[in-house]
Amino acid sequence: MKLKHFGLILSITMVMFLAACGNNPAENMYTHMEKAVVLEEVFEQQQEPLIIAEKKEHELYEQIIKLGMSEYEEIVDLSQQAIAIVQERKQLMDKEKMSIEAGYEEFLKIEAEIEELKDEELKNFALQLKETMTNRFESYQVLYDEYDMALSLDEELYTMLQQEDLTIDELQEKIDEINEAYERVMEAKDVFNEYTEAYNEEKKEFYTLAELDITFVD
Rank of each mutant, 00 (worst) to 15 (best):
H5F: 15
F6L: 13
F6I: 14
L8H: 15
I9D: 15
I12Y: 15
F17I: 07
L18I: 14
A19F: 14
A19N: 15
A20P: 15
G22R: 09
G22N: 13
M29H: 08
M29F: 05
H32I: 01
M33H: 05
M33Q: 10
M33G: 13
K35N: 14
E41R: 11
F43C: 03
F43I: 02
F43W: 00
E44I: 13
E44V: 14
E44D: 12
Q47S: 11
E48A: 10
P49R: 03
L50I: 10
I51N: 06
I52A: 08
I52W: 06
I52D: 07
A53W: 00
A53N: 02
K56I: 08
K56N: 12
E57I: 07
E59T: 02
Y61C: 07
Y61S: 02
E62C: 06
E62K: 11
I65F: 09
I65P: 03
K66E: 09
K66C: 04
Y72C: 05
E74N: 08
I75Y: 04
I75Q: 11
S79I: 12
A82E: 09
A82I: 06
I83D: 03
I85H: 00
Q87A: 07
R89Q: 09
K90E: 01
Q91W: 03
Q91C: 01
L92Y: 01
L92C: 07
M93R: 01
M93T: 05
M93K: 02
K95I: 01
A102Y: 02
Y104F: 11
Y104K: 00
K109P: 02
I110R: 01
I110T: 05
I110Q: 03
L117I: 07
K118M: 08
Q128K: 07
T132R: 00
M133Y: 09
N135D: 04
F137E: 03
E138K: 04
S139R: 01
Y140C: 07
Q141G: 01
V142L: 01
V142N: 00
L143W: 00
D145G: 01
E146R: 08
E146D: 04
E146C: 10
L151W: 00
S152H: 05
S152T: 08
D154N: 14
E155R: 09
E156G: 10
Y158N: 03
Y158M: 09
T159G: 12
M160I: 09
M160R: 10
Q162T: 11
I168Q: 15
E170K: 12
E170T: 13
L171F: 15
Q172S: 13
K174R: 12
K174L: 12
D176L: 02
D176W: 08
I178H: 08
V185H: 04
V185D: 03
E187C: 00
V191M: 03
N193Y: 05
N193W: 02
E194D: 14
Y195I: 05
T196L: 04
T196M: 09
E197M: 15
A198M: 11
N200S: 15
E201Q: 14
F206C: 00
L209R: 10
A210V: 06
L212E: 08
I214S: 13
I214K: 12
D218P: 12
